[in-house]
Nucleic acid binder design. Structure first.
Lengths: 343, 343
DNA sequence: TTGTAAGCGTTATCAC
DNA sequence: GTGATAACGCTTACAA
């Protein structure tokens, strides 16, 4: 008996109800519904029919109690707000969805206390595994080695090499960007990027410079322009750059935000993009990249894919053995109109 | 016994282990740990000590089996990608976190089939309640009246008035924006907004016009400029507007995206913001609003608050009775530098 | 104050 | 093929 506005008043329907209605024992009912072979077709039909009639849905908690597997995993994020966590979450949720696994979402908000608290709760709920999604691509403290379930770290690698971590390949991403610019015939390529305290900034710059070196080129402006992850920095750096190096013909920005600032100033300075200066961003943050003038070529980190892989690794580890070390997920180039072959 | 990389090999520690170590029965151990009165202080201490030594954490699944309450809720979103869902999610997760309730995250990706599938799974896991988070502020189909648990609809209201829905107050939001502009001394106020097929666009426009009427004013340009939710539309509409109505002194944009386009064209046209034209956006999408030139005054929908309220309503409904109808959450004005008193 | 026993809803192991 | 019966880990009368 249930009230109309969804507040349950009576017992939920159980396997016993189904068995009774079908005129069999609970044991038989269970076998019938679980597709075991040891049950007559006609009996099975009767049970299935009864189950449907009562719209029976098995109590997963009870099942988990027996199988010692809850069919759930915990997604422990340190910063839901951060735009990087979301696609990873989506990828993981998606991958698990097709595996009958449900996902607990926990946001620690960057607070270690809260993280420990959520961890306790998740273990108490007997999750079969954990994915720890970081907010920054830098190393984070491990949850520890003595957890009863496998853990995969995504985006922020664990500081314990015995853990399994999945990260984006920023070195290759930087290389990808510069490679594209070189193929477009650009020779005077500058790199404006964010906070040098981020490994992402360092790695992308490293990849970029490696590719330049292969082509026998030097950075336009002589050095990497480190600063902040903001449009304002993109604008400021570009002004300085145009001043010091007026013949620059391509700019690799360390993020789409920075790239927006770069475009803005180039526009003001009357430099046409891409015919005079090509611009490439990083992140493929659609709202910024696709709406830019002109739409921005950029590097996509494949975060959703990263989340999906994290889920797969975890799934494989449940009951099996987990790998260790840092696994790297390559990004991909998204070409739009802010880059083009030189004239 | 557990391996070093987190793959559980042995049984998890159970209350029996604790009881044995403490030299009492499971019943006593249970009472001791749950703070029941009927246990000697010294015994309790022994049990607690044993539990800690084994780092025992009670199996929530087993507890749920008895109490008929899983301590979990389902968060059913139709579009995780959408930026509106995220803050709602965060608010809800936060509110539940302090209530010992864990949250299942399910993304239906706008697919009804997938939604039914997730719904089944969640009910099977005996969630105590559901929050359905929509991607658009328009009405969505109800999950139905005969669910065994209470449901709260957030952002997208249910089409069944017997359900409880929480939505943002777009009419009031539009009023808020125009009120601010009027207080800044503006008289020739235009409204450029998005797709007229969105109730959000209609409602905001309605609120804006109501406030204008109270002040005895008409819309600059004579009508609402409906179009698309994009920067490009913001740019295009502003060009037309400047053409038709060159003396406009304020523009209310239906979204921050549109506002960015508006600012861009005003800048090109040499109109100073805010001294000549004030601009106000909607959504408080920080990446766009805070980085604009100048930083954008905008209306924040208080989505996180909406999520928090949804959680509270659901929590109150679990075991109790759920309200019905549509409850409205007011937004708030965020003032930055794109608006200022005239002269 | 403590322990025994029943039971939550399911599955697995046996007899029948 | 089918049905008792015993788990799974925990709580809670009720008995000691």
């Amino acid at each position: 008996m249930e009230s109309t506005n969804g507040t349950a008043t009576g017992r939920a329907v159980t396997l016993r109800d189904v068995a009774r209605l079908a005129g069999v024992s609970v044991a038989t009912a269970s076998k019938a519904l679980n597709g075991k072979q040891q049950v007559r077709a006609e009996t099975r039909a009767r049970v299935v029919q009864a189950a449907e009639q009562l719209s029976f849905s098995p109590n997963t908690l009870a099942q988990g109690l027996i199988t010692q597997r809850s069919g759930t995993v915990g997604l422990l994020t340190s910063d839901l707000e951060g735009r990087f966590s979301i696609p990873i979450l989506m990828g993981a949720e998606d991958a698990f969805g097709s595996d009958q696994t449900s996902v607990f979402l926990c946001d620690a908000r960057g607070d270690t206390i809260r993280e420990r608290h959520h961890l306790r709760a998740l273990l108490s709920r007997r999750v079969d595994g954990l994915i720890v999604v970081g907010a920054r691509p830098d190393t984070r403290p491990s949850l520890g080695r003595d957890l009863p379930v496998p853990v995969v770290y995504a985006y922020s690698p664990s500081d314990d090499p015995a853990d399994l971590s999945l990260v984006t390949d920023n070195v290759d991403g930087g290389r990808l960007a510069v490679d594209h610019l070189i193929r477009c015939g650009r020779r005077r390529i500058a790199h404006i990027t964010g906070d040098p305290g981020y490994s992402a900034a360092q790695d992308r710059a490293r990849g970029a410079q490696a590719r330049l070196a292969e082509a026998g080129l030097e950075l336009a402006g002589g050095e990497v322009w480190f600063g902040m992850w903001s449009e304002a920095w993109g604008r400021g750096a570009t002004r300085l750059l145009l001043d010091r190096c007026p013949d620059v013909d391509a700019i690799f920005a360390g993020s789409d935000e920075i790239a927006r600032g770069v475009l803005d100033v180039l526009h003001e300075a009357g430099r046409d993009v891409p015919s005079q200066v090509a611009v490439i961003g990083y992140d493929n943050w659609t709202i910024l990249a696709a709406n830019a003038r002109p739409p921005l070529t950029t590097v996509d980190m494949n975060l959703e894919e990263l989340g999906r892989i994290a889920a797969q690794r975890l799934f494989a580890a449940i009951g099996g053995t987990l790998g260790t070390g840092v696994e790297t997920v390559p990004g991909r180039l998204i070409t739009r109109e802010s880059t083009a072959p030189l004239g």
